Simulated scan of single mutants.
Amino acid sequence: MHTQLDAALLLSQPLTWLLAGLIVFAAGYVRATIGFGSGLIMVGLLTFMFPIKLVVPMVLLLDIVGSILLSGYDFKHIRWPELSWLLPGSLVGMVFGAWLLYSTPAQHLTLFLGFFLALYVLYALWVKPERLPRIARGWGLPLGTFGGVIGSLYGGGGPPLVAYFQMRKLEKRAFRATFQGIALIDNVIRIGLYVFFGLLAFSQVGAFFLLLPAMAVGLWFGNRLHLRISEVAFLRATLLLLAIIALKYLVSGFV
């Protein structure tokens, strides 16, 4: 594992740059297709190559690009009332998660996240994703808080927010647009928190610029697929990604 993540390392090791670029491309493709998952994919795979405390802040910068581009593209589809409870919960969760990332080994919470996701996926498959019950907006407060903690720790608080949006019955375009809206707000705030805790270094910005083209290309291809898939396929794809993420965190929590 490399002990640094900056432009100098990537330029001096083209193979490392290529592998990291492929991971970022895949993450952008998934993000544009189903609206979330890029942060968790990048953190989950890049941490095999770099320390998590270097990866998470750099991934945050890449995720902001995805949020800006997708929220701008889908701006008129954002359901602003859905953020009324999600946003306050996310703010509380982000502060707590950033403090945990700064002061404790973040991997200690991976097992809990894995169990939560696995139970939700099993429940959704049991009732079928298109038949999930509709929940009240108030559920946005606890799920937003959980998402904020996970976002600060692992670079993406998507899973709890996905559960909320699925059970609020948002169609795929509104789902993706509204997710980008709260993700953009969250990411900007997280930058401030990471700077405050000294987690974001200037050297990581160089790596961000070298990996940015891979993110942009992945977003472009993923958006083309998003506009073509059906609502049912979209729901099932989100559950598949959640199941993969759950398995990854369950395995890492036990190892």
Rank of each mutant, 00 (worst) to 15 (best):
L113Y: 09
I182E: 01
I189Q: 05
L240W: 01
L239K: 04
M42W: 06
R134V: 12
P88V: 00
V30P: 09
L193Q: 10
A174M: 07
G138V: 12
L9N: 10
R224Y: 02
T47Y: 01
A20C: 09
V127R: 07
W85H: 11
V30N: 03
L100D: 03
L19I: 14
G157I: 06
W126N: 07
R131M: 02
V149H: 07
V251Y: 14
Q107P: 00
M58E: 08
A243C: 13
Q166G: 08
W99S: 12
F116E: 11
L22K: 06
A118V: 12
A32Y: 05
R134T: 14
F116T: 14
R134I: 08
V24I: 11
S252E: 13
P81I: 02
M94K: 01
R79I: 15
Y164M: 03
I229V: 11
L46C: 08
R134S: 12
A118E: 01
V55H: 05
T238I: 15
V217D: 05
P142G: 02
F112Y: 15
P51G: 09
A246Q: 05
P88H: 03
Y102R: 15
N223M: 12
F96A: 14
D186Y: 09
L200Q: 06
A8Q: 14
G138R: 12
E231M: 01
A201Q: 15
G157N: 05
W80K: 13
F197Y: 13
L109M: 11
A106R: 01
V65I: 13
F208W: 07
L11A: 09
R224W: 03
L193K: 05
G66N: 08
D63W: 00
L199W: 06
A118L: 14
I229H: 04
L235H: 02
Q107Y: 03
K169N: 06
G192R: 04
K172G: 07
A136M: 09
L170P: 09
V232R: 11
S230Q: 01
M167C: 08
T104L: 15
K169L: 07
G222N: 04
F75M: 12
G72H: 08
R236T: 03
L40D: 06
G156H: 02
A106P: 06
R131C: 00
T110N: 10
F50N: 12
Y120T: 10
A237T: 10
F197L: 06
N223F: 08
Q166Y: 03
V251H: 12
P51M: 08
A237Q: 05
Y120I: 09
R176L: 06
I41H: 08
P14Q: 01
E231F: 02
E130V: 00
W85Y: 13
V43R: 01
L184R: 06
A27S: 11
F75D: 10
L212Q: 09
Y29Q: 11
L22C: 13
I185D: 09
I23S: 04
V43E: 00
V205R: 05
N187I: 03
F202P: 11
